[in-house]
Design a protein around this nucleic acid. Structure first.
Lengths: 152, 152
DNA sequence: CTAACTGCAAAAGCTTTGCTTTTCA
DNA sequence: TGAAAAGCAAAGCTTTTGCAGTTAG
């Protein structure tokens, strides 16, 4: 049952991990690529992808799935929630101390064996709430404010 | 401020919406394309994408973001949570009656104005839990069971 | 009528993969 | 020294877009 493959700590892998641990942002693979190129000018994007995959599989980083379709990575491996600003798309960590226990309610309703949960809050960051309220509403209106009767 | 563009209820749009309302699965754009082609053999995938976008913007369907990188769509527009089976990847709705209130705790901690939240449970569906326990563990082991010392 | 929409095909992300060379242990 | 990983480039998916023709209202 044990998998005897073993991994090497290459320079690329070490620096990707180190840089990810430095920040509390949640960079995409491409952003990680930019972050490490100052130390490894010849690293390839493929190597970044492969290492992010390996590092998340061995639990050194977290692959996070939040709104939007690109994957993001988090150097903080402790379970924690995220808040996303719906105006500027910034993602921040909710302190690990905030943790909800949903007990067996879902297990009993869905008859699933629940192992984990993912919780994301969506709202306005302080800056966007304060400074951009008007602009943002106009923007949302432009995107969403179409009207139609579906006839259904 | 109001956007005076208006939308038309075309046959394509109506049938995409109708088919999405019929099912309680959470199809991807490509799966919707397959679903509607029996009624509209000449519809294009681009049209499906465009309509899914419009329908979700006017609130007739929901664009859902769960684990995995492809977008899925839900004909159920009432707010509800999802459970995902980590073995077979099936996604099911948690009944709308199950709804948690996180109060102002996040607002006060993060100083965000929280507008909504997304909650997803990950676990084993009854079938996978019962029938595939061994096979699945072997599979997870093969994928994750690599060991390394990071030296950090 | 005419603006919105469709079908088609090409392009545009993001991510993975094949292959040869390099490197860690 | 040999298996793992890197670099490079090509391919693969999903999604978006430009355009000419079609259609709802």
């Amino acid at each position: 049952m044990a998998n005897d493959a073993f991994l090497r700590m290459t320079n690329q892998r070490r620096i990707i991990l180190r840089e990810l641990r430095k920040v509390n942002t949640h960079p995409s693979a491409d952003e990680v690529y930019d972050m490490v190129r100052q130390y490894l000018p010849r690293i390839s994007l493929g190597t970044v992808y492969r290492n992010l995959e390996v590092l998340s599989q061995i639990g050194e980083i977290q692959k996070i799935e939040v709104g939007g379709s690109i994957k993001r990575f988090d150097g903080n491996t402790k379970p924690h929630y995220h808040v996303r600003c719906m105006a500027c798309d910034r993602i921040e960590d909710v302190p690990e101390s905030i943790r909800f226990d949903f007990g067996d309610q879902i297990d009993q309703t869905m008859h699933y064996k629940i192992m984990e949960h993912r919780l994301e809050f969506i709202g306005l960051c302080p800056e966007c709430a304060a400074r951009q309220a008007d602009r943002m509403m106009a923007n949302i209106d432009r995107q969403i404010g179409k009207r139609v009767s579906t006839g259904i």
